[in-house]
Design a protein around this nucleic acid. Sequence first.
DNA 1: CAGTGGTCTAGACCACAGT
DNA 2: CTGTGGTCTAGACCACTGC
Lengths: 240, 240
Amino acid sequence: MTLSQRIHDEIEARILAGEWGPGFRIPTEYELTEHYACARMTVSKALSQLAREGYISRNKRAGSVVTRPHTQSAVIEIHQVRDEVATLGLEYDYRMRRSTIRAASGDEVRRFGLDAGTIWREVVAVHVAGKRPFCLEERLVNLAVVPEAADAPFEREPAGSWLLGHVPWSAAEHSVSAEGATALAAESLAIAPGSPCLVIERHTRHADRFVTWVRLTYAGGTHTLVARFAPARPDLPGGS
Amino acid sequence: MTLSQRIHDEIEARILAGEWGPGFRIPTEYELTEHYACARMTVSKALSQLAREGYISRNKRAGSVVTRPHTQSAVIEIHQVRDEVATLGLEYDYRMRRSTIRAASGDEVRRFGLDAGTIWREVVAVHVAGKRPFCLEERLVNLAVVPEAADAPFEREPAGSWLLGHVPWSAAEHSVSAEGATALAAESLAIAPGSPCLVIERHTRHADRFVTWVRLTYAGGTHTLVARFAPARPDLPGGS
DNA sequence: CAGTGGTCTAGACCACAGT
DNA sequence: CTGTGGTCTAGACCACTGC
């Protein structure tokens, strides 16, 4: 346990206990420096972490004050489907159902903000957990950005893991919703059309270029996203 | 733009561009110190942030290496229902449907790890967006932890916002799933029983004491969770 | 054993926002 | 104007770990 960590934890404990409630002005860096008999950078590190975690807001001249909880953010872990299945202790299997190469539709060009004439590799596949269909994957890969995907062995390997090995780093946006099973989903997952499904859509970009879009459909009840509370965004020190 | 931020951004750019791919060993702190002609703490701060963001893993003796993207985490913003409705530009209304005080069932005691004999304030309410039911809220508040909740005006104010003003800070766990509408949900949201709904459950604890449980049910299609990609867990500096 | 990251120090200068 | 945080420095000691 480092000293700055200890300072952080002690202040966090007071805030969590309500001893230092919202609006409370915590001791200045100088006062904490004296109290802990340490250098200013050490307390600064602790306070920076508290600020990053959203417990306090730091203001010049006015000092640091305890914030009041407002917008909660929760961190959701988005795993590879294969790993999810492994976590459940089930045997994993993967079946590609369809693979085509086609031009993006006008609708897609508008929706994703693509160059006209973008060519997709389109793949429909089912992830299987212990003999039962678990997740339907509908995917589009932009061949202008990842031309090797045209010949990638998506009949053997899920596009997600293949892409991880071929596109170095990327930013993604997820959306989560509940929808009735489409005809394709119903057939693929062996459920009734219209029955509740958890749908995760993801857009992935690499350096502002559209890489891939994927839609994962899980039969309701077979899948739950779990999120831990996280008081705030990691920004400081040096926040972006 | 601080120097450590500049160092961070330049290295991040190389990683995002794929110039420094997964497994690449980045320059040591000492080398970066020379390159940027600055103190070691300055580059250390930049590298700590990169590590916290999950771009690199730092190892003694072996140096820091670029990680490969694996477990994505996504940060979901969990707002107050009132704010969600405001964001949609609709008029917000709130209607309490039922409020009772009762002992926790044996099932609940086991599920939430409560003391036997825990007393709940139980509230069922509907959030309304522009004349139409938007979200069903089923809530339990632990009166052993928040005794004032016994007399709180939940017929006027949603329990969520009331609690924010009465419980200083807390940790929560969320789960998101798709389920068919229960009879209560169907009636409250004016939809057909069994039709797809997005269900968010949240447990809130304060200093390890169970504060409240809530289950929010949205008719499918009326609500989507949006998440930004975040490469990794906020841990370092002071990392656990 | 030696190189690397992890942490800390004592001091400094600056920008900023209240007074 | 002055107190506060934001950042940086030059140097130090330590723990770990792979050579």
